[in-house]
Design a protein around this nucleic acid. Structure first.
Lengths: 152, 152
DNA sequence: TAATCTATGTCAGAATGCTGACATGAGTCA
DNA sequence: TGACTCATGTCAGCATTCTGACATAGATTA
């Protein structure tokens, strides 16, 4: 492992490590979701709707960490394939509350099993203390990064 | 914040939190790199070359968590714009060792300052202990996720 | 009430990254 | 030596996501 003192030493950069972990997580999730014909964003959307029925397109987008436009495309596909339903007209304002269909719920159930296996694997090598540390530390990182986004 | 007991509870999912942190980091880096006309992958490539001169296209791709093909496109652009150089013929095998030009090095210097500010911000809210915990825990997560990728 | 601001859904075009495929060079092993 | 395996660089086509833009609905404020 060669390295010199210049710049941000990648071996010691928390940002690089975070990116590496995220990349590994994404790969693991894609691997278990592929046999189900489902992408990570696809799964995220369904999971969000299961836990908070009636979310709008924009809310789903924020929850899945993509743009409104991207989520909009996905939602239309999911609606076309019968996984979700949206009212033809907005009950209030422009917001179209989205809900899972029975088919969407069934599809999600299989995916949830697959994804949970990844989550379990990730937690496996950690003690109880490390697990709660992980939550606290990740939350701290998110908070620090968000603060500077529009603050300073 | 509503939620029920079904499925993977996102509020308590380490995977979701990891994705959130990674998303925040990416946004923060894009924000500071945009004024320099540089993308995250672009910066990653230059930083890798600064620390390990002579890396091949494939090695750079693995280091930046993209495919060979993606890195290949980027390298050609960087070479065209005079940030890196690659020999016309492979000294050995097919591997074309890549190196930063003085221009590439100058460009990287500015980016490094910007990126370091993000890294500092991320570490700011954490104690010394938490910082070393963060490294250990992230490494543990990466290891666990990788193991299962082709193993079990 | 009227003006302004903010958030939403949506369309269009562009950028980015990926999968599939191919030829080639190097290492392995019979 | 020859067959096999593996990694590399590269081309082409496709998928996903993003940025920019617009009209509209609700909230805020003068």
């Amino acid at each position: 492992m060669s390295q010199n003192g210049v710049g941000v030493d990648l071996d010691k950069s928390l940002g690089y490590l975070l990116k590496e972990a995220s990349s590994a997580l994404r790969a693991a999730m894609e691997e278990v979701l592929r046999p189900l014909g489902m992408s990570v964003t696809h799964y995220s959307c369904l999971e969000l709707l299961a836990q908070r029925p009636g979310l709008s397109n924009s809310e789903l987008a924020r929850g899945a960490f993509v743009t409104r436009q991207t989520m909009n495309v996905l939602l239309h596909a999911l609606e076309r394939d019968g996984y979700v339903t949206r009212p033809a007209e907005a009950p209030v304002g422009k917001v179209l509350p989205t809900r899972l269909t029975p088919r969407g719920r069934r599809s999600l159930e299989k995916a949830t099993v697959a994804v949970r296996s990844v989550e379990v694997r990730m937690l496996a090598g950690m003690t109880e203390t490390e697990q709660s540390d992980a939550f606290r530390i990740l939350r701290s990182m998110i908070h620090s990064l968000r603060d500077g986004n529009d603050g300073a």
